[in-house]
Amino acid sequence: MDVIEAITQRRSCRKFKDEPIPDEKVTDLLEAARLAPSGGNIQPWRFIVVKSEEIRTQLAQATPMPFVPKAPVVFVCCVDTQVFSPESVGTRFHELKEAGAFLGTPLEEMRPEDYAKRRNSDPIAARAYLGLNAAIAIDHITLRAVELGLGTCWVMMFDQDKLKEILNLEDRYHVVALLPIGIPEHVPAPRPRIPLNDVLLKEV
């Protein structure tokens, strides 16, 4: 299966077979996320893999979507706000510099401390930036899942505080999505898409 096939076949799946997902497939999905690109290589995504029936049942207290706890596996997709700490930013900066990512740009001569100051200090903008980067990793998971014969569904209706309580999450982590995963009970029909002419604003 090539990338465009995975994109074409990907659906939001809300009914899953009552079959466990092999550990190697779970690891495969996490690896797809790990390899995702991110701005400044900050790699803010963190995941909790919920397999136990006990915790999956408790997730029903945090989301109104009844199919979430019924999936054999649920990824709780988070971001780590501490990726913006000077130490973390400095480490990522040196990694990028060593990899030659800054060649031919003004960043090639920039000092780590100056690089760190480039971050937007607005907490709302920073949270949105982390979520945007995490979304890339999550989409890697959804497309790899198609290749593995699995279904997924982005769920963004949940109680942040309740999830943190159930999962004993530290304040540094922020949940951006729930991703129930399983073998589809049926393949949903393709969703309507607006035509390409409506997507393309102009060519200049």
Rank of each mutant, 00 (worst) to 15 (best):
A126V: 02
E54P: 03
L96N: 12
L107I: 04
D2C: 01
L59E: 01
P20F: 03
A125N: 12
K162C: 08
E203T: 11
L148T: 08
K97P: 00
G40L: 05
L167N: 03
L163C: 07
G100A: 05
P184G: 07
M157K: 03
F47Q: 07
G39N: 04
I42H: 07
S52H: 08
D23S: 12
V50T: 05
K70I: 03
V146W: 01
L148C: 09
G149R: 11
K15H: 15
T8K: 15
D161V: 04
M65W: 00
Q160Y: 04
L103V: 12
V74F: 02
Q58K: 15
I48S: 11
N120G: 05
I48V: 15
R11M: 04
V175T: 10
K15D: 14
E98M: 07
A33R: 08
R172Y: 08
R14M: 04
E98K: 11
P37F: 12
G39C: 12
P192F: 02
E203M: 02
E5T: 13
R10H: 11
A6I: 03
G182L: 02
C77L: 11
L96P: 01
V89T: 08
M157P: 02
F84Y: 15
T27W: 13
G151P: 07
M65L: 11
T81V: 00
R56F: 01
P190Y: 02
A101F: 03
Y173D: 04
R172V: 05
P22E: 15
T81S: 13
L201C: 12
A137R: 05
M65K: 10
R56M: 06
A116Y: 03
Y115W: 14
L169D: 09
G151Y: 10
E108D: 10
M65C: 11
Q58M: 13
E53P: 01
A135K: 00
N168G: 15
G149S: 11
K15G: 06
M157Q: 14
S12V: 02
H186P: 00
E19Y: 03
A32L: 05
E203A: 05
D23G: 04
R111M: 11
E54T: 13
P192C: 05
T63Q: 03
A36Q: 13
A126T: 08
D114V: 04
I136G: 11
C13N: 09
V50Y: 06
L130M: 10
V187C: 02
L178H: 06
D23E: 15
D23W: 02
G182M: 03
T63W: 01
K25C: 04
